[in-house]
Computed example of a mutant assay.
Amino acid sequence: MKNIKKITITAAFLIFTAFAFAQTPPPPNNGNGAAGGGNTPVGGGAPIGGGLIIMIAAAGIYTGKQYFRKE
């Protein structure tokens, strides 16, 4: 009986969070019409280069740490 209760609570939590974070997509070009000019991509073209390098470096350090810990 405890397992069914845990599964029910977990399923309810997952369904609630899925609906809580659901959003409609933003309008193209941030809501600007074609007359306003500029075909800005949705999202503004945020740079990801610096964050990607930091993430890869952190993953490499963590992997090396785990590898040498096992030996």
Rank of each mutant, 00 (worst) to 15 (best):
Q66G: 09
I7K: 09
L52T: 13
N32K: 15
I61G: 13
P41A: 10
F16G: 04
P47M: 05
G31R: 03
G37A: 00
G44H: 01
A18Q: 02
P41G: 03
A58Y: 02
K6M: 04
I9R: 07
R69W: 06
M1Q: 07
A18W: 15
A58F: 11
A11H: 00
N39S: 10
A46T: 06
A11T: 12
G64I: 08
F21C: 08
E71F: 12
A46L: 12
A35C: 01
G50H: 10
P47N: 10
A34Q: 08
F19K: 06
A57N: 02
A34C: 01
A58M: 09
Q23N: 09
G45H: 01
N3D: 11
A11V: 07
G45Q: 03
F13C: 03
G51Y: 09
I48N: 13
G33L: 07
T17L: 13
G37N: 05
G45M: 08
Q66F: 12
P28M: 01
G43R: 02
G49Y: 11
G43H: 03
I53T: 09
G31H: 05
I4D: 04
G64M: 00
A46Y: 08
K5D: 09
P27H: 09
N39W: 06
N3Y: 13
G36S: 13
A22F: 10
R69T: 10
K2H: 12
G38H: 03
K70A: 15
P25H: 03
I56M: 14
E71Y: 02
K65L: 15
T17G: 02
G49V: 10
L52G: 06
I61L: 15
